[in-house]
Design a protein around this nucleic acid. Sequence first.
DNA 1: GTGTCGAGTATACGAATGTTTACTAGCCGG
DNA 2: CCGGCTAGTAAACATTCGTATACTCGACAC
Lengths: 185, 185
Amino acid sequence: MRTATAESRPRDREATRRRLLRAARELFAEHGYEGVTVRMIAAAADANLALVARYFGSKAGLFAEVLKDEPSVRQVFEGDPAGLPRRLAEYAALRMHSDPESPILRSLERSAGDPEIQAIVRDRLRNAVIEPLAALLPGPDPQARARLVTTVFIGIGTMRRLLGPEVPTEADVDRLTAVFEQALR
Amino acid sequence: MRTATAESRPRDREATRRRLLRAARELFAEHGYEGVTVRMIAAAADANLALVARYFGSKAGLFAEVLKDEPSVRQVFEGDPAGLPRRLAEYAALRMHSDPESPILRSLERSAGDPEIQAIVRDRLRNAVIEPLAALLPGPDPQARARLVTTVFIGIGTMRRLLGPEVPTEADVDRLTAVFEQALR
DNA sequence: GTGTCGAGTATACGAATGTTTACTAGCCGG
DNA sequence: CCGGCTAGTAAACATTCGTATACTCGACAC
């Protein structure tokens, strides 16, 4: 007895690889690296657990691949620099609420036990978030200010995970906007 | 051959309990709940690993006990309310740098896999940090502003863990002060 | 048709974890 | 001095994890 969805699926290496990648992205975003097992990923992708090792070398390899594919937060950075704090606040509020796209950041905040994973996460955080953001900022010490903004982002994710999602109010967004303005100044 | 420190130590239930508690506090603060094993705690306390279960029921029970004993961050809240942002910033900067006292927060940001642990952490965060802080704040919506401040704190810890400790400059502290002022307004 | 290559599978392995259990030995009251 | 309570110990247990391995079976070339 095979699972219903697995019945007579054409054998397609690339498609299976994509299913694993997709399942891994969602699970890592939800539970963090250590909160996910390769068995969970394989089950969600309706694939055999050995294929993770075959296609990605290891669980860590799959994780790195997920982060590589993840579109950066760059879209938030694009556009009118003056509106950046507001966009950051709205993005963060959305993130606080539901985080439908579940991007890189949510995965970052919880993954750190293994030093190898920590290195992967650190590089990705630097290259995909802090550096692009710092490049946008005029004035002195853009790195430090970019780190500060990222700090708030990370904190929001962790708070959301701890306290549960809360519907952000208009006042929340306004407050966050002010904080980001202050952080970017 | 026993370990050097264990040689001929008087059998003292309370003292051993305290050693375990102390070792657990330091390790949990450093590595988070899931990054610490019962064997690590027992080794650091120079005690037998079975005593954790005997004295605290379980690893989770020990963790809860650690959080219960942990002095709250309340001292930062005491004193002149006008100076609160600055004190928060200095405390956070210290935390960013070395965190010598390693209080509750550092343990919070990483511990969440098990729902039981998550509940323990959530309650403690609410009762020992957010509520006392909110009680200090005049004006509307003190809860939301207290959460925002806590968010920055949590984020700082995670960033520190990911990017490594960095020596905070005067400008960093000034910037943080401004951010906290904004968040508390 | 049939042989071969590779996608997919089932199972096992070794390590690590929290917890339990049966045991040992030190101290204290009598 | 000695008997019993108990702190402390050693070993094992059951699970779970990531990974490795030996296998099956379907599709395409010839």
